[in-house]
Nucleic acid binder design. Structure first.
Length: 423
RNA sequence: GUGACCGUAGUUCAGCGGUAGAGCGUCGCGUUGUGGUCGCGAAUGUCGCGGGUUCGAAUCCCGUCGGUCACCCCA
């Protein structure tokens, strides 16, 4: 029994799985780097009002899932529940939007939502996100979507799907919203659903209950009521996706939980993850920057769930980061040998060779066992006779071959052996 | 936040009212300085935590904490 336990709903990654987590995260961010996005490091807490105004007071995320508290100066602080609002705040505050547009940024780190934990749903969740700000070019929408697709594909994932729709804009959405509300008013719905219809009628569309869905068959859909500009924009996005070879399914009833989304909206889901199947989602947000006090620039971005992407990889039997993480394992027998190998280890590491050593004066047999388990392809053994001969035994763990190598040639020999193994 | 199920060794799990078990892992041994296979042996548990019922509780009941599944929500 340990005295303390981690807070509820917080995932921890430790070896060996932490290696997979790190590898997943680097695949996700690499896709963004490959498309010219630059890293932005942001605070994990912000002024509560930023989320209330940016994300939307009526959203579940803001109204019942935020970790908010008063700091010692009496300010209301909130642990960030999502990434986009914070990026907007920083862009406006630091005038990153005053140069060439679009500004393309990526970020990574923990986010916090006080939800009831479940497999794949955590109170501290990890995301890798991108934002492209200051252009409403539909090619940029397509780029962002394609980056997400490539991020998942680069990990070897295949059992995922891209859901796509357009949520319209300030011109066409209000009229559609009224239309939908009128439609919903005539349906037989329970109180909670009626309430939702009043606050965010779009949300009713993706209700999972059959009894509700049956009544929604003839519900008006946003995509059928887009204004000319939105329709043209959406067509262009789809045309670009086709030319990039990205496939998707139309999801006219898809809804996002954050109020700022407009026009292009998308979600990646994985079919093996159960109820928490969303592994990434995003879209365009046209009014967000202005609502946070900046110029009225539009933007588009996504957040990819690092935790869930790892779960998706595991569900598909993929093993990210499984490559051996060591090149050489050193086995000393005796005090003199240890002194020599400790020094050799430092030199190997300085030469960029990943090296570990058998500590704790284990017997040769035990040390070899440790060497085997380390996964290192090469093992260097030094005992009394090697010390005397000023040499070392270098063993290949895969073939079992062992060579006597003069001490002065060791680093060169090892480098060459690793080089050979890589080719 | 609502409902249901689960919580036993490092790990996966069996035991379900009468002195705590197995597989895997860990450590040691199988003669002097060589791992993976095999054989033999050993260590490790306040049976999540707190109450209650009982002669006796890992086992039954209540609470609590944690996890899981669905709803909800979303990454």
């Amino acid at each position: 029994m340990s005295m303390f336990s981690a807070p509820k709903g917080v995932p921890e990654y430790f070896p060996p799985r932490s290696r997979a987590f790190v590898d997943v995260r680097s695949h996700l961010s690499r896709a963004a780097e490959l498309a010219g996005y630059s890293y932005i490091e942001l605070p994990v807490f912000e002024d509560t009002a930023l989320y209330v105004r940016g994300v939307g007071e009526s959203t579940d995320v803001v109204s019942k899932e935020m970790y908010s508290f008063e700091d010692r100066g009496g300010r209301s602080i909130t642990l960030r529940p999502e990434g986009t609002a914070g990026v907007m705040r920083s862009v406006v505050e630091n005038r990153l939007d005053k140069g060439q547009l679009p500004v393309k940024l990526w970020y990574s780190g923990p986010f916090f939502r006080a939800e009831r934990p479940q497999h794949g749903r955590y109170r501290q969740l990890q995301q890798v996100g991108v934002e492209a700000i200051g252009s409403d070019d539909p090619a940029l929408d397509a780029e962002v979507i394609a980056i997400g697709d490539e991020a998942f594909r680069s990990l070897g994932l295949t059992r995922y799907a891209l859901h796509l729709t357009s949520l319209g804009c300030a011109v066409c959405r209000p009229a559609y919203r009224a239309l939908l509300q009128a439609f919903l008013a005539d349906l037989d719905l329970d109180e909670a659903t009626r309430e939702r219809a009043a606050i965010n009628p779009l949300r009713v569309l993706d209700d999972k209950r059959e009894s509700v869905q049956n009544q929604l068959i003839d519900a008006p859909l946003m995509v059928d009521h887009l204004c000319e500009a939105c329709a043209t924009h959406y067509d262009a996005v789809r045309a670009h996706l086709v030319s990039m070879g990205v496939s998707w399914v139309e999801a006219p009833r898809m809804v996002r939980g954050l109020d700022y989304y407009t026009r292009t909206t998308f979600e990646f889901t994985h079919e093996l993850l159960g109820a928490q199947s969303g592994i990434g989602g995003g879209g365009r947000y046209d009014g967000l920057m202005a609502s946070v006090g900046g110029d009225d620039l539009s933007g588009i971005g996504f957040g990819l769930g690092t935790d869930r992407t790892l779960l998706a990889c595991e569900a598909e039997g993929l093993t990210p980061g499984a490559d051996a993480h060591l090149d050489v394992f050193l086995v000393p027998i005796g005090a003199e040998a240890k002194t020599r190998l400790v020094a050799l280890g430092a030199r190997l590491r300085a030469a960029g060779i990943r090296t570990d050593l058998a500590y704790g004066d284990r017997g040769l047999k035990g040390a070899m066992k440790a060497a085997d388990r380390s996964g290192a392809p090469l093992v260097v053994v030094v005992g009394d006779s090697e010390v005397e001969a000023d040499s070392a035994q270098v063993k290949s763990m895969s073939t079992g071959d062992q060579a006597t190598v003069p001490w002065t040639d060791l680093i060169t020999f090892i480098s060459a052996a690793i080089e050979r193994d890589l080719t």
